[in-house]
């Protein structure tokens, strides 16, 4: 167990290092520097500025400075928002995005697991076909299409929800639904296929033979085992929800991180792009690690396997 976790932790550190390396190199490969816009500077001033911001250091020194900055949780200033650091931008946007992400995740779980169970228990019947059709829709329709449709019909035509903004909790409803579309379909499929497999296994037959009620068989023996694969996708799913929120935030004009990110792309705000990328990547990698630990804790078979 300890060995396994150490290995995963090592993997996590390596991944983060590679992420920093890639981000740093891509950003350095972009022609032009922070002062190349606007007036041409006299050479002495350029040199002085380079000296001040260590831009004349060898690349690897710059890279380690950069890594050092990140280790001190400092992502640097934003090029385009004057007086704002990338940290400020993240601190401003992340609460909104995270709220949206958590809500979407809860919504996904609350809807998709029951749907998956129904589909699995009615395997091959019309309920299964219907749910299968819905999940195909969910997987194929891009989130920005769902978001626009929801906004058009529910917010604009029917006026049930605010068209944009998150002044109250109601404003989160449509973005949440739009955002969860894909993961909802995905988790439903996962729950269904895993429960179908579990219900065929020997210990389910044993449970039935013991005379347990169908409810007990499904809930206590079937469901608990079939939800393990669902747990493993939670980490990447949450990161995906954060990522998907770019477009949803844009459509519903939510003041989240995704909007800043899209803006920083349009503005070519390189430090901000770099900072957001790193932040997202780190969140993802850490979440995957946390899920690995949870995975070990809830499934005794894995611990057995590891020892």
């Amino acid at each position: 167990m300890i060995h396994f976790l150490l290995k995963r932790a090592g993997m996590m550190v390596a991944t983060l290092f590679v992420i920093m390396l890639i981000t740093f190199s891509i950003m350095h490969a972009i022609p032009g520097g922070p002062y190349s816009a606007g007036k041409r500077l006299p050479e002495e001033i350029q040199a002085a500025l380079d000296e001040k911001y260590h831009l004349n250091d060898p690349l690897y020194v710059q890279f380690f400075d950069y890594v050092g900055g990140i280790l001190h949780l400092d992502l640097g200033p934003s090029f385009k928002y004057e007086g704002m650091s990338v940290n400020d931008l993240i601190a401003q946007g992340f609460p909104v995005s995270a709220t949206l992400g958590v809500l979407a995740m809860l919504f996904t779980l609350a809807v998709s697991i029951p749907l998956g169970i129904i589909a699995a228990l009615k395997h091959g019947k019309w309920q299964d076909t219907l749910i299968g059709f819905i999940t195909t829709l969910g997987v194929t329709i891009p989130s920005f299409v769902v978001a626009s449709l929801l906004e058009y019909f529910l917010a604009f035509r029917l006026g049930w929800f605010p068209i944009f903004g998150v002044d109250n909790l109601k404003g989160y409803v449509l973005p949440m639904i739009a955002l969860s579309g894909y993961s909802l379909a995905f988790v439903t499929r996962l729950t269904r296929s895993s429960l179908v497999d579990v219900m065929r296994s020997d210990y389910i037959r044993t449970a039935r033979v013991k005379g347990l009620s169908e409810r007990q068989v499904v809930v206590r023996h079937g469901l608990r085992n079939s939800l393990i694969p669902v747990v493993t996708v939670l980490g990447p799913m949450f990161a995906g929800l954060l990522m998907g929120s770019f477009v949803v935030e844009k459509i519903f004009a939510l003041p989240g991180m995704g909007r800043f990110f899209v803006q920083s792309i349009t503005n070519r705000d390189y430090t901000a792009i770099m900072g957001f990328t790193l932040f997202y990547a780190t969140v993802l990698v850490i979440l995957v690690f946390v899920v690995d630990i949870i995975y070990c804790l809830i499934d005794p078979r894995i611990q057995l396997h590891l020892s």
């Binding site: 993997m11 991944t15 590679v18 992420i19 890639i22 990161a239 990522m243 990328t277 997202y280 990547a281 993802l284 990698v285 995957v288």
Partner: peptide, 8 residues
């Protein structure tokens, strides 16, 4: 594959 690909 641990890196969020969309970002890259």
């Amino acid at each position: 594959s641990a890196i969020p690909l969309t970002m890259y």
